[in-house]
């Protein structure tokens, strides 16, 4: 008899609480915007924060809500801006969009004290070095977010323009005065 009471009461509790959970899941659901996820996929995902938002997902959210322009992503540049505009179906005039000059971080090794702060800050593991050892930036990995510059206690890091070389140079667009 006691056994049946126990089983019965527990079953009843289970059903009731389960019901509450089920209802709560419906009512209090956090809506994940599929558009937001898709936009996030287009962004570099390096969480550099240069757009002014905390990270790529926050920027993607702002884009999805139509609160942010598509041109904010510095590492992504024109290419990402174009993709975002295409996905969002907004027209954006990128002809005057002055792409920020691509830069990379450079550590003045004479000034580096080996504090490893920049290493912790780097979201792409672009800096090598260890405690009390000189650090250096692998320029190929660096995407120019500049977060390491801010944390360096000795101002040893500066952003350097990526030089134009024979391998990357191409002819500029012809300047035409008349419309053809």
């Amino acid at each position: 008899m006691y056994m049946l009471t126990a089983i019965g009461s527990l079953t009843a509790m289970g059903l009731a609480l389960g019901g509450v959970l089920g209802v709560a899941a419906r009512l209090l659901a956090v809506e994940e915007d599929p558009l937001e996820l898709e936009l996030q996929g287009l962004l570099p995902g390096s969480q550099c924060g240069q757009c002014g938002y905390v990270g790529c997902s926050q920027y993607a959210g702002a884009l999805a809500r139509g609160e942010a322009p598509v041109t904010l992503c510095t590492p992504g540049g024109k290419a990402v801006a174009e993709q975002l505009a295409k996905r969002l179906g907004v027209s954006v005039d990128l002809s005057d969009h002055v792409a920020p000059v691509p830069t990379y971080a450079f550590i003045n090794e004479d000034l580096c004290v080996g504090c490893t702060r920049c290493i912790k800050e780097c979201s792409v593991d672009g800096i090598i070095g260890a405690n009390k050892q000189m650090h250096t930036v692998m320029a190929d990995n660096c995407h120019g977010c500049g977060k390491c510059v801010e944390v360096c206690p000795t101002n040893a890091i500066k952003m350097v323009k990526i030089p134009k070389t024979l391998a990357t140079w191409h002819w500029p667009k012809p300047q035409s005065e008349t419309l053809h």
Partner: peptide, 20 residues
């Protein structure tokens, strides 16, 4: 070609950030 290089770099940044 320059755009292809930028795309490649973006892809690389993404991979590095994910690994990080």
């Amino acid at each position: 070609n320059a755009k292809a290089r930028v795309d490649q770099k973006t892809e690389r940044t993404k991979t590095l950030a994910e690994a990080h």
